[in-house]
Design a protein around this nucleic acid. Structure first.
Lengths: 337, 337
DNA sequence: GTGAAAGCGCTAACAA
DNA sequence: TTGTTAGCGCTTTCAC
């Protein structure tokens, strides 16, 4: 069923049907009614591909995410969907399986799918990313990571880490270990959160001790392993641990619990991300909450604005966060605060 | 940059470039190289919209889900993405916010976007769903719900519920309450799981007692409320509770814990879904695990097969499940089994 | 082995 | 107010 079938059935030309469909141009009330009747009867709806080709507008944006099966990503995508839906945009989704190199493939692929803008949730930006993004003549907004010269919306990882470590220091902790990740392309987590950790130490005149730092993976098991190493390899034990993600923190707690080391009295623990689990660990985990739904909304609105008003999206925008203090750092909260 | 630009730069016609691009028809090695060189230099990739219009093939499928920000949906979509990616299909995603009526809108909308098949994760099927799906001349595979005459892949909700309730009965429980939901359109959860519950009672010659049944919402709070009512309104208290979802079960446990009623000795609790939280409640919750990643893979493979081989997808396919027995029904597992 | 031309389903400028 | 026509960027006969 296509426009000329409707035209034939209604006894008019294709252009007239098109006018009725799009409410454009002149068409007499009588003919409009007749055409509309045929459209309603047949349930006809125009082929969007043909329309897109003609209009040079697909009303589609691309979203590149590292993985879908993740609490945070799901929220971000949900928010993006809702914005898009409101504005009449469709979403073409790509998934990189946490592979920063695949992000580049996806950028190109979506571009050739004629998307009008791209939301890139990156796990690591390289100069090639920048080169490709610059070569695409559609707006691209990056989140998750930040790089000078690109338009990025990202969490204020450095200050979040700093605030968290400061809180521990203010609770009397003096030897706070750092459990980090060793993903080289990553800046937001590995670099920024470590900088925040060091900022906090510097602020309180505590010397940075490389013996209290370990690098591992994004897993609970890796957290347990790093914690065990730090504990066993240091004569003077740490009295606190800052893990760059909640999963790692939960892993660290598993070691401490197993060794019957009191949390937080002997060793406080804090993570980042407010993972669903962190509320239910024993003790509950102090962490930083980022607002992914809000982030998704902000970037999508900005992207669509940028598409429709042909404004260049630029600048690095830091999104605010909340520190969630629970009993893993503060005895006050011990009774499930 | 389009095909005729490449043609001009290479000093050939557009058809020749097209042949090089698609490895079709005859083209001399010499010209092929020259054209390829221009393509590589310019980074040209054909406009997929134009190609789709010509080919009448978009290599795109639609996915309709009730919400993205959900553990189970995320897994399903992740699996679908991976299958699609392998087979060269793209995904156009729609989200209904749990509104069964919106599923119909999305079906139509995706159809007019020229998707070649649709995966519908439904929260409730009506005869209108069936009418629309039948009218679309592309394969549609339904999951989450089942209806005669449509192609459905769904969890074996009835038997899962039956098995779970049987387990409780075999542990000596005799008055098992049912916490259900009151969503009318829903069949899989409300109807099938209740049927399974009744099957189990019947199997053990236990009479169904409507006083032990309540209907509420898909929330923890609703679980607490229903449990409270059942407890207070029954002279002879229940000694077990089967909740149709883990969230409701967790809500019920909150009431029991608050009232210092021993779980599972005084009252056992079981849910369905293996929510991430259910492992961490105290006591850990006995539940049914469905395999969403496998489900997503199965339906997507079937859908693509159906598209490519023009076979009609049909039948109701039940996906298997695992019972996860934890300490909320079985003291044996008390030490975090 | 290569190019010209038609056509995918739609819209919009122009003619009537 | 309505219809005719050209063209969006590509592929694919069909001639050469």
């Amino acid at each position: 069923m296509q426009i000329k079938d409707i035209a034939r059935l209604a006894g008019v030309s294709a252009s007239t049907v098109s006018r009725v469909l799009n409410n454009s141009g002149y068409v007499s009330e009588e003919i409009r009614k007749k055409v509309q009747a045929v459209i309603d009867e047949t349930g006809y709806r125009p082929n969007q591909i043909a329309k897109s080709l003609k209009d040079k507008s697909t009303k589609t944006i691309g979203i590149i995410i590292p993985q879908i099966a993740s609490e945070t990503m799901a929220k971000l995508v949900e928010a993006a969907y809702q914005c898009c839906n409101k504005k009449g945009y469709k979403i073409l989704m790509e998934n990189t399986q946490l592979d920063s190199q695949r992000e580049i493939e996806c950028l190109k692929s979506l571009y050739h799918q004629q998307v009008e803008g791209i939301l890139l949730m990156s796990v690591g930006l390289s100069s090639e990313h920048k080169r490709i993004i610059d070569s695409l003549n559609i707006p691209v907004i990056v989140t998750g990571q930040a790089m000078e010269g690109l338009c990025c919306y990202t969490h204020d990882n450095r200050n979040a880490a700093k605030d968290l470590v400061c809180k521990m220091i203010e609770c009397g902790k003096k030897r706070i270990a750092l459990l980090n990740v060793d993903i080289q392309e990553d800046d937001s987590i590995r670099v920024q959160r470590e900088l925040g950790y060091r900022d906090a130490l510097a602020l309180h005149n505590i010397e940075f001790d490389p013996e209290l730092v370990r690098y591992g993976k994004f897993t609970i098991a890796s957290g347990t392993e790093m914690m065990e190493k730090i504990w066993n390899e240091n004569q003077i034990k740490p009295d606190g641990v800052f893990a760059v993600t909640d999963k790692i923190a939960i892993g660290a707690m598993r070691f401490l619990v197993k060794e019957k080391i009191n949390i937080p009295l002997e060793c406080a623990v804090a993570g980042v991300g407010n993972n669903k689990l962190s509320e239910f660990t024993d003790p509950a985990l102090t962490t930083v909450e980022y607002h992914y739904f809000e982030l998704g909304t902000a970037v999508t609105e900005k992207l669509i604005d940028s598409i429709e008003n042909r404004t260049k999206a630029e600048g690095i925008h830091l999104i605010k966060y909340d520190i969630i203090e629970r009993s893993s750092t503060n005895e006050q909260h011990s009774c499930n605060g």
